[in-house]
Simulated scan of single mutants.
Amino acid sequence: MMLICKIKKEFKNFSLDVDFSMDENHLGFLGPSGSGKSVTLKCIAGLINPDSGQIILDDKILFDSSKNINIRPQDRKIGYLFQDYALFPNFTVEENVRLGLRFDKNLDVSDRLKEMHIYHIKNKYPNEISGGEKQRTALCRILLNKPDILLLDEPFSALDAYIKHSVEEEVMRIIDKSKLRTILVSHNKDEVYRMCDSIISIANGKTYIKKEKNDFFKNPKTLTEAKLIGIRNFSSIEPTTNGNFHATNWGIDFNKRGDFDKKILAISDNAFTISNYPTDSNSFILDNYSILENIDSLTIVFNKDREKFTDLRIKLAKDDYYKLDKNKIYANIDQKDLIFVEDR
């Protein structure tokens, strides 16, 4: 059971070049807004026609430019959950669900409405129900036709933060119960981590190598991947005479023999410790910094000279900072937490 998608599509100001296969249950596409995530889903669903390539689902060709094959969206057995759920405002919940019936238009949908916990609102209209209820209504409409795969396009972006997690858990429960394969598109790294087995990063219309989720978050190989997992500290590097290297963006020397075919150093803001004395790891004195106070942490913004360098951010617990003598503070980082990435 596999999805193969290798397609290209030219737009006026954007080029899509997607190449991936999927044999796991839950795949995530992680990328910034405008990177091509949603366009890719629409091509798989048949809502946008690629210029070239092929899309194959479980050995059935859905699209193949060389063979002039392009199966209609309604014949692809693909469920698509839109960001706005695509509910018709002038139809009730039950009527919206029934609109998804492709075959037996007179089918009794009561059991499915009860299963999705929307039977009690079946006579209400979309503007009378909550965001979570809208999502369950849209999912119910999709599941009636027993799709082979479900495409989730930023499914929680329209929900308030305080209900997002509970709705996410409920959606995953429904997906697991239905044994549905899914592709989730999101720019939220935590959401993708919780819901997916493997992750593909996408930037500027191009997909990168699929990785198991733990490997994706622990071992970024490119600048794009490092940014997507939340790293904000980046510097160009130059080798030094003693075989170590200099981070040019911050004006700091580090003691590690780097992988200098990769020209960028990435450091997570929570990879540091601080102390009143240098440690055996890489240490440098914090002689010019400001403090940003968060709810449960602090961010030290270090910059030796703002006319020459960029900021280096160090996140730590408030107690770790306040218990120190402020006359001389060192930032320390273990060599294993220095990450070298490719500039792409």
Rank of each mutant, 00 (worst) to 15 (best):
L298P: 00
D287M: 02
E238Y: 03
I229C: 02
H246K: 14
R306S: 14
Y330T: 01
T273D: 14
N249L: 08
D320E: 12
D337P: 01
I264T: 13
A331W: 00
D261K: 14
I231A: 11
D305A: 09
F309L: 07
K308P: 03
G251M: 08
F284T: 09
L228D: 01
F260E: 09
Y330Q: 04
K304I: 09
Q335T: 15
N288S: 15
G258C: 13
T240I: 04
A317T: 03
E225I: 12
L223T: 08
N255I: 09
A266Y: 11
K315C: 06
R232D: 02
L228K: 10
S275I: 11
K323T: 12
I252N: 09
D319P: 00
P239I: 09
F284E: 05
T299D: 12
K308G: 02
W250N: 03
I329V: 13
N294W: 12
Y330K: 04
T299K: 13
N244C: 12
R232M: 00
Y330H: 04
D253A: 09
G243Q: 09
K263H: 14
N288D: 14
E225D: 10
I231R: 03
I264P: 05
K328V: 06
K336L: 06
A247S: 12
S290G: 01
D280C: 07
N288E: 12
W250H: 07
K318E: 00
S275K: 13
I329Q: 05
I295H: 07
N244L: 08
K318I: 05
G230I: 05
L286R: 08
